[in-house]
Nucleic acid binder design. Structure first.
Length: 230
DNA sequence: AACACTGCCAACCGCCGGGAT
DNA sequence: TATCCCGGCGGTTGGCAGTGT
């Protein structure tokens, strides 16, 4: 099955009424496009970004004449239009790295993606949900088609709590990193080993690197192996 | 051939943090 | 200081296409 081809179905356009009443503001209606992007929209977006750069997404959306919200433009750019994006065919090497990084970081898809050049957090998340989570736990039922609708936050789980608690630490990368992922009793969700890392600031500093740094990967794998031996 | 089921991807949603006002 | 706005993030879902019955 080929999933790389762009799909450009008919755009559903409808009136979205912002929740201005809640915000105590006057009610405003605005036509915005939602759903799959058309080739024409892609072209307009790329043109504007080529001139103004990928920032100020609201302005980009307006300048491109797209009836899209800035968020949607950002997502489209980051996940699809951005240069040097690799699509499909996750290599064994990449898969191994994803597994190791996930063991270390949990569902921090953007951080994991930052270590895989040309891969997006969305792609890695999708790959994890459709391939790797099943590999780790073949009995696991796919999470899709959940009955709930509205509100994307699930009840906070152990791992989520722990990951959230370290979020800021990892983000500003100034404090020693502690990832004490949950170890659970038998029959629970797959457990992650706990570890404490007096990580030096540079170790998780991805900000100054443009692409996959194999030296970093080697360091990471060494670090990871050392930790597991400990 | 027709239908149901499943896999996968793209895109949306709500939450959150940080900067601007 | 309080509030608003924007961008980033992870979770979730709609819908197409392939596969099974």
């Amino acid at each position: 099955m080929l999933h790389c081809k762009p799909r450009y179905p008919i755009i559903i356009s409808f009136t979205m009424e912002m929740n201005y009443e809640k915000m105590g503001k006057s009610r405003v209606s605005k036509e915005i496009n939602r759903g799959a992007w058309t080739a024409e929209e892609d072209r307009k977006l790329a043109e504007v970004i080529a001139v103004h750069g990928p920032k100020k997404w609201k302005t980009v959306a307006a300048k491109a004449g797209l009836n899209r919200c800035g968020k949607s433009c950002r997502l489209r750019w980051l996940n699809y239009l951005r240069p040097n994006i690799k699509r499909g065919n996750i290599t064994d090497q990449e898969e191994d790295l994803i597994l190791r990084l996930h063991r270390l970081l949990g569902n921090r898809w953007s951080l994991i993606a930052g270590r895989l050049p040309g891969r997006t957090d969305n792609e890695i998340k999708n790959y994890w949900n459709s391939h790797l989570s099943k590999k780790l736990d073949p009995n696991q039922k796919p999470p899709r088609r959940a009955a709930r609708k509205g509100g994307s936050r699930r009840p906070v789980e152990k791992e989520t709590q722990l990951v959230e608690s370290t979020r800021r630490e990892v983000r500003d990368q100034r404090t020693p990193l502690t990832v004490a992922a949950a170890t659970t009793s038998e029959g629970d969700e797959p457990s992650y080993p706990s570890f404490h890392c007096e990580a030096d600031d540079d170790f998780f500093d991805f900000s100054n690197e443009s692409a996959l740094n194999w030296e970093w990967v080697s360091r990471f794998i060494q670090f990871n192996q050392l930790h597991h031996q400990a």
